[in-house]
């Protein structure tokens, strides 16, 4: 299988989807290497929970595999954009379900974790603080901020994923970033702002 990787690594994601549907054994690994980290990162930041994010990423990848049979290489959606969209929707479903189950959930709870002394613990705390701050944002703002500032997608790509216009994306990311800054303002020292 490893011998297939150099050949498939030059192919586009869409071409890999077609290869996957045709039974190519290297296509799944190449697509997983490229797309799974993005799906997981997106889900982890939006959900603020690693285990939930892994479930969402696995489910999204499963849907990607199942979509391979009907994938059109020309003119169809980009697999990465398609996957982000699936992840976004799965995250929204989970957030809404969690809100119904636990309406008194404190979004700042994760930020109250015991501060560590080692660098790894500091990083973990920073991510926890970021996740807690992101949890304060409305769903759409949170998705837009994560996709723009962490996943590094363009506004048109985000517009396709969230099914809104580009101007709406600009507004969502601007308002989201402003709100995030306000929430994190009180935690500058812990987050390394003042370093």
């Amino acid at each position: 299988m490893s011998q297939d990787l150099p050949a498939v690594s030059r192919l586009s994601d869409g071409a890999l989807m077609v290869l996957f549907a045709n039974g190519d054994p290297g296509a799944a690994r190449a697509l997983t290497t490229r797309l799974l980290p993005r799906a997981l990162s997106h889900a982890a930041r939006v959900l603020g929970d690693r285990a939930e994010a892994e479930d969402v990423a696995q489910e999204a990848m499963m849907r990607l595999w199942k979509a391979a049979r009907d994938w059109r290489q020309d003119g169809g959606a980009e697999p990465a954009t398609w996957l982000y969209r699936v992840v976004a929707n799965l995250c929204v479903d989970r957030l809404r379900r969690a809100r119904r189950l636990d309406p008194l959930d404190d979004p700042d709870a994760a930020a109250d974790s015991t501060p560590g002394v080692e660098a790894r613990m500091v990083e973990t705390e920073r991510m926890a603080a970021l996740d807690a701050a992101l949890a304060n944002l409305p769903e759409r703002q949170r998705q837009a901020v994560v996709l723009r500032h962490i996943e590094g997608l363009s506004n048109p790509e985000i517009a396709m994923i969230l099914d809104v216009g580009v101007e709406a994306v600009e507004s969502l990311t601007a308002r989201g970033k402003r709100a995030l800054g306000a929430v994190l303002a009180g935690r500058k020292e812990a987050l390394g702002y003042d370093r």
């Binding site: 690994r29 997983t32 980290p37 997981l40 990162s41 982890a44 696995q58 990848m61």
Partner: peptide, 21 residues
């Protein structure tokens, strides 16, 4: 710092590849 902070573990990769197979 958040970029790439969530690298998938071997276990998750294995589960995804099993689904794919």
């Amino acid at each position: 710092a958040a970029r790439g902070a969530e690298a998938p573990g071997d276990d998750l990769v294995a589960r995804v590849l099993a689904d794919a197979a």
